[in-house]
Design a protein around this nucleic acid. Structure first.
Lengths: 343, 343
DNA sequence: TGTTAGCACTCTTTTCATTCGAGTGCTAAT
DNA sequence: ATTAGCACTCGAATGAAAAGAGTGCTAACA
């Protein structure tokens, strides 16, 4: 068990290191108001804390900095739950006072605003695409020659695609087609749309419309929508300001990793709801081994639909990051709920 | 006037420097096959070329590298018009063999593909927003409570916005509203939409619909669309691989500049059609003073609607960049034309 | 017995001088 | 007109020395 004095010293070291990114020496700790002991005493305590694995040195005569175990302990037991400033709360609430339009815009905006507020990177993962289903199909004629196909999913995602109406197709053909589509495709997960079209709809269209190949071709073109983006990353540039990224090679690795949805998404697919902190090598991906990730799930009603996360150096302001993330995901969930309730 | 030998040496230096990013010494030039003179001779010629302003040294005993004037001369008179590889041409043509859907997607994809092909940054500027006009308004009911407003512009941009139907509004109110909107707002530039709604439409709605304030509120919410994005930037990460960006501060400046549409857009609003090259300080913006920008306009039919550009270090492969850009903008124009002709 | 002052020791960072090498510019020879 | 030769310049790399921050240990103190 750690003594109160050790706890205090550990806390001071973490707080100070988060602030300065420099190893902390005993003299500097002794200068702090809350600390009433001499540098020598602190050195002894620090030696003990190091032996216990909470602190580490960069070299034999350097000051101490927290180890991953130190951060973990800090996060679990020492961290002051941070009050956000009124300005920050205001800013967040202001964003959510507007009506939510589409989940995707909310995700994108969230990523942008949070990374600006925290100065870390923000990752926002949306609902499992595999579970997103088609809710409605509409075709809106623009003029004689062209029309827009509109697809709405159960997450509120709206996809539109303009296309040229094949010659020989008339209004009633279009209407019939739309009816068939709605009948057969509503409720089908987006990822199965193309298979479903081939399997079920193809035959029906042949049966009901006057010009089969035209209509079918049109269909394929209009309905093969790109799957909605599922991951938003924002604030990469912020990392350039972090001293741990003064090395261009590190930046390259991080940036290129962030381009690849396949690599990031699994990190965020957290199984349990709530807020979770992954410090350094607690992240299984090597490129993130000197970063920390804080994730928080958000919901629509009861359904946990996605994750919003902050990524920063292990030396990050955990209290602030957690506070921000929790407030944000709460507001976001509320806001999504009220929007979905109305629909 | 430069002698043939000077031209040859200048060309070799530019080509070599583009390749290696290192100042070139006389010995290395002499080693080139095409060059049949001794290092001493070359040194004399280089001294002359330097005096004329085509070459420069990094310090008094370094090799030579091209000055901006040198690049300018190279680009105007020496550059071999590069043949793209079959692979590259194939890749470009393949992209344009698909049907174009929306200008914005074309822009976005163009930025991505070109920056991958060239390893430089790509900027794509779309049509003047001020000139983009509303072409059609549609409202598609989703269910009892909500609907989607769809706005189509004359550039093919489709904007959708879901909204909640105010209680008390019935189907016929909606229809009337849409009719009024189409009558009054079609042809209005997007940037004037809100003013126009306030000025013209407000009164009419009051007159025709049973519940004025509801309908008007709905309208404001649904029609205050974000203006379509006009600028796409891609390939920022490529710059990390350029040796001229081994300094983090430079990267920060460049990246933060690229976040600001207001700063970049003016660069691309070129008045004359065709391809233009701006080398180093020929760019009026200071942050781009050691970069080069190559712009190329693209058209829809006769109308020059936008600009596509590559941004790289002054030491860039101008021949390849120009070739890529020209092929791309040509294909893009053709492709857009055929799409618009069909509409 | 817990705390602290004092001091030798360690390791990094900074500075300065030296050396090394690539490359020039000039001169003299071809 | 060209080129070989050589002194000279400057940056980059190397290394030694000094400065500075901080530790660990010992001995003294309350």
């Amino acid at each position: 068990m750690l003594t109160d004095r050790q706890l205090l010293i550990l806390k001071v070291i973490v707080d100070e290191f988060v602030d300065t990114a420099q190893p902390i020496g005993s003299r500097n700790i002794a200068k702090k108001e809350q600390v009433g002991f001499s540098p020598a005493t602190i050195r002894n305590e620090m030696a003990d804390l190091e032996e216990l694995g909470f602190l580490q040195k960069t070299h034999s005569s350097s000051g101490r900095m927290p180890s991953e175990k130190g951060y973990r302990f800090y996060v679990d037991h020492l961290m002051d739950p941070l009050k956000l400033t009124k300005d920050e709360i205001k800013r967040i609430n202001k964003y959510f006072s507007h009506k939510m339009i589409e989940l995707e815009r909310v995700m994108e905006n969230s990523a942008n605003i949070l990374s600006e507020l925290t100065q870390y990177m923000t990752l926002v993962l949306g609902p499992e695409i595999f579970e997103t289903k088609l809710k409605q199909v509409q075709i809106v004629p623009l003029n004689q020659h062209s029309a827009i196909a509109i697809l709405v999913t159960d997450t509120g995602h709206v996809e539109h695609r303009s296309f040229v109406i094949p010659q020989g197709l008339d209004q009633s053909d279009l209407e019939k087609t739309v009816n068939i589509l709605n009948e057969k495709l509503v409720g089908v997960p987006l990822v199965y749309l193309d298979r479903m079209i081939k399997k079920e709809v193809r035959g029906l269209i042949k049966q009901y419309t006057s010009d089969f190949s035209q209509a079918y071709h049109l269909l394929e073109e209009a309905l093969l929508i790109d799957l909605p983006t599922n991951l938003y990353v924002s604030g990469k540039g912020n990392m350039l300001n972090q001293p741990e990224f003064n090395d261009i090679e590190k930046i390259k690795i991080l940036f290129s990793m962030m381009e690849s949805e396949e690599q990031i998404a699994p990190l965020l697919k957290s199984k349990e709801e709530g807020t979770h902190i992954f410090i350094g090598r607690e992240n299984k991906i090597e490129a993130l081994n000197d970063l920390s990730l804080i994730t928080s799930t958000y919901t629509i009603g009861e359904d946990q639909v996605g994750t919003i996360a902050l990524l920063g150096p292990t030396r990050m302001d955990y209290a602030k990051a957690v506070a921000m993330l929790q407030l944000w995901s709460k507001q976001m969930s509320q806001s999504l709920k009220s929007w979905y309730d109305e629909n």
